[in-house]
Amino acid sequence: MLIVMAGLPAAGKSSVAEGLGRALPAAVVPVDPVEAAMWRAGVDRGQPTGLAAYLVAEAVADGVLALGQSAIIDAVNAVEAARRQWRTLAARHRVPVAFIEVVCSDSRVHRQRLERRSRGIVGFEEPTWQAVQKRRAEYEPWTDQRLVLDSIADLPSNVAKAQEYVVIAAQPPQAAP
């Protein structure tokens, strides 16, 4: 199946994705390291490297799904076009897609996480709090069913909830009697 994480930077989606990837197991395909690799390769930051990173992540996930394995996309997925990209990929492979949005309900904690985090992605600059707020304002409403997790809860509980959700989402629809 295809599992799509969503949420603002530093909300906690990567932590949930990694925990879920270990628990299932499933390949985690994060977009930020892909974009940083493009910059390290000399692609100008003025180019649409964010879009390109989503397309590279799609290609990687396409290969994983072609092997009959599950993939977890780790990206902000703030706009409908990105979400449609993942629905289309899942449909192409005839696998279920499950969306999981991670939020942080305490803006003080969210900001502290952002300002303290260092993920060690060479060449990747973490966004500022102002950039995260701008992204929040541009976040498009959801039309897909999704699980919403609040990262104020402990990580093991959120990973367990995510795992329960994807197990249910992976079940084929029941036929009407």
Rank of each mutant, 00 (worst) to 15 (best):
A6L: 05
S157L: 07
A59D: 13
P172F: 03
R92Y: 09
A17W: 07
R136E: 07
S151Y: 10
Q69I: 01
V132Q: 01
G21P: 14
R116S: 15
R94Q: 15
E58S: 08
L147W: 01
A53V: 05
C104Q: 10
F99M: 14
S15M: 11
K161E: 12
V60M: 14
Q145E: 09
P96Y: 03
R108Y: 04
A37W: 02
P25G: 13
V166Q: 10
V148H: 04
E80A: 11
Q145M: 00
A26I: 08
I72L: 10
G7D: 05
E35N: 04
R117W: 06
R92I: 00
L89M: 10
A91N: 05
E115Y: 09
V159K: 12
I168D: 09
D144Y: 03
I152A: 07
A153F: 07
V64S: 01
D74R: 11
L8K: 08
M1Q: 04
L67S: 15
P48E: 12
V166Y: 07
V79D: 12
Q171M: 14
P48W: 04
L155M: 13
R92W: 11
V16Q: 04
A81N: 01
H93A: 03
R146Q: 11
V76K: 01
Q133K: 14
A137F: 04
T88F: 08
P9T: 05
A137H: 12
D32Q: 02
V167C: 00
M1K: 03
Q171Y: 01
A6I: 00
A41G: 03
A160Y: 05
L24T: 12
S15F: 07
W129D: 02
A36I: 05
V76H: 05
L65H: 13
G21V: 15
E115D: 14
A23H: 11
I100L: 09
V79W: 00
Q130I: 02
P48A: 14
A162W: 04
Q163T: 08
D32I: 01
S70N: 15
S151T: 04
P177W: 09
S105F: 04
N77V: 08
L89A: 13
A57D: 05
T88N: 13
H110V: 00
P156I: 05
A11D: 02
V132L: 03
V4G: 03
A61Q: 15
P25E: 10
G123K: 03
Q145F: 00
L149F: 02
D44K: 07
T49K: 01
A169G: 04
A176V: 14
A90H: 10
A10T: 06
E18A: 14
E125G: 11
E18G: 14
C104N: 10
V159D: 12
Q47L: 12
Y165M: 09
E126L: 09
E58P: 03
A66H: 11
D150N: 14
L147C: 06
I3T: 07
A66Q: 12
F124C: 03
P9R: 09
T49D: 01
V64F: 01
S105P: 08
M5R: 00
A90Q: 06
A90E: 12
